[in-house]
Structures are given as C-alpha cells and as structure tokens.
Simulated scan of single mutants.
Amino acid sequence: MVARAVLVTGSNRGLGLEMVRQLARHVTPPDVIIATCRNPEAAQELQQLSKSHKEVNLLKLDVADEGSYAAMVRSVSEMVGDQGLNLLINNAGVAPKSTRITQVKWQQMVDTFLVNSVAPVMLSKAFLPMLKIAATQAEGSGLSVKRAAIINISSVLGSIEKNDKGGIYPYRASKAALNAITKSLSNDVRDSNILVSSVCPGWTQTDMGGKNAALTPEQSIFNVLHLLSTMNETHHGQFYQYDGVKLPW
C-alpha cells in the first residue's frame, strides 16, 4: 500500500486521472482515495472508477476558490476518519501556451500563479491538521508517504539551474515558486514527521504535454508511484524526477 488515505487534486484528466486509476487498481490499494476536480459530474472516467472501486471517492474542488476549502476539508475529514490524511498530492495545474517576453500577458502570469503556486500552499495549510494526525499513527520519526506526506507535482521547467532556453514565463515561474514552497514547507513541518517533496512526472502525452511527449501517462505515473513508495528522509525538501533522479533547483 502506498498510503492508507490519499487525496489527489486535478483528477478529472491527464496525470491526475491516471494516478487515481493506478492507485485504485493496485494490488494493495489505499483504503481511501479522494479524487478532486472542478466538475465531478462531468468527469465520466472518474465516475466509472468510483463505481468499480469502492475506495475511490469523488469530491468537487476548484483549487482557485479558497472560499470552498472549508466545506471540502470537512468532507475529507469525514472520509478519512480519526486516522487522518496520509498523502496529499498537489497535482492540479495549468500551462498557458508557451510565451516569449514580447508576448506574455499579465493575466496569464496571475492565473497561473494562483493555480500552480498559491493553491498548493493554501491546500497544504488546510489539510495540515489531518496530516499531523496521520503522522502520529506510526511509531518512531521516520519519514514516508505511508506515514504522512505532501507531494507537489512540479516540472523540470521550474528548475532555475536547468533553464537554458528562456520563455514559458507563467509556467516556469509558477513551478519555480512551487519548488520554493516545497522547501519552506519541508522546514516548517519536519518536526511533525511529514515528508515534503517536489516531483517532476516528466514530459508526458497529456492535453498539457502534447502528443509528441516522451512518456505515456501510464509510464509516468507507474514510475512516480514507485518513487513515492521508496521515499524517506533523504527525499525531504528535495526535487526529484519521476525516475528517481534528483533535480537541481
């Protein structure tokens, strides 16, 4: 089992949907899988997964609407019970069309930061009490996603050191900010025994990545879930690629 109770944001398509699918079909699936998206009623594949896998619970969540967080947190609390939430995967994200400095727009920057950077830190804050409860259920102080973890789905495009091509301002900057959030969170929650890490799922054949990408969603998520299952103290506050290669900030 990767973890007892898992919440994945942005689960209606792409990597989020594939993550829920592979978690549900795992030989030892989580007891509770909470798949969130803006419009669960229209997410037909998620609906089918919830019908065929009792572990999958659908929940409406627009990560850009902070006003909806309180009700959503109450619903999650009822689902996970007194053992808390073990794994929060901040997967929801947007990627505007690739832009150069002469074409980037104000609203592109603002909207992308809201979803890719602001929402993950505010959701982590909202779920922190449940993560802390989960962290107390295991003995010792070792870190793992099975115990309690926040995983931020980032991108190599957010690596400042590896940026040798420029452009893509909204996405690059928002993911670099997400990585900074990961680092700060890792320091803030270390004493609570909560693992925090950024993970790049690779260039993947999704609506966001395009059909020419190197990896299928199945390949990417298979590797991501394997990586998560092996994470420990050495991964805390770090940035990793789907295949376990450590990435520079």
Results as ranks from 00 to 15, higher is better:
Leu128Phe: 06
Lys60Thr: 07
Thr102Ile: 02
His235Trp: 02
Gln47Arg: 15
Arg147Ala: 05
Thr234Tyr: 06
Asp207Asn: 08
Met109His: 03
Gln103Ser: 12
Pro129Trp: 01
Tyr169Glu: 02
Gln205Lys: 01
Ala135Leu: 08
Tyr69Asn: 10
Gly142Leu: 07
Leu49Asn: 11
Lys211Cys: 15
Ser117Gln: 13
His236Leu: 07
Leu215His: 05
Gln241Asp: 03
Lys146Leu: 05
Gly209Pro: 09
Ile194Val: 15
Gly202Tyr: 00
Glu55Cys: 12
Leu87Phe: 05
Trp203Pro: 15
Met1Ala: 13
Leu114Pro: 00
Ile181Phe: 00
Asn116Tyr: 01
Ala173Trp: 03
Ser75Asn: 14
Ala71Pro: 00
Asp164Gly: 00
Val6Met: 13
Ser75Leu: 07
Gln83Val: 13
Arg190Cys: 10
Ile101Phe: 12
Tyr171Asn: 08
Gly67Leu: 00
Ser77Gln: 15
Ser144Tyr: 09
Asn187Thr: 14
Asn187Leu: 14
Gly84Phe: 05
Ser174Thr: 08
Gln103Asp: 03
Phe113Ser: 08
Lys165Thr: 10
Pro129Val: 11
Asn12Ile: 05
His53Ser: 07
Glu66Met: 08
Ile168Glu: 02
Ala126Thr: 10
Leu123Ser: 01
Phe127Leu: 14
Asp82Ile: 02
Phe127Ser: 09
Ser98Val: 12
Val118Trp: 08
Lys162Met: 11
Cys37Pro: 06
Gln205Val: 15
Met109Asp: 00
Val245His: 02
Glu161Trp: 00
Thr99Lys: 05
Ala95Tyr: 09
Gly67Phe: 03
Ala173Pro: 02
Asn57Thr: 09
Gly14His: 04
Ser186Trp: 02
Ala95His: 08
Glu78Leu: 15
Leu225Ser: 09
Gln219Thr: 09
Ser229Leu: 12
Leu85Met: 12
Ser77Thr: 15
Ala135Gly: 13
Val115Phe: 04
Leu228Tyr: 00
Thr9Ile: 04
Met122Val: 12
Asn163Gly: 07
Leu88Asp: 02
His235Cys: 12
Ile101Pro: 01
Ser192Ile: 07
Met1Gly: 12
Gln108Asn: 06
Lys97Gly: 13
Ser124Arg: 03
Ala126Cys: 07
Lys146Glu: 11
Arg13Ala: 03
Lys105Asn: 01
Phe239Thr: 05
Thr28Arg: 10
Ala64Phe: 12
Thr234Pro: 04
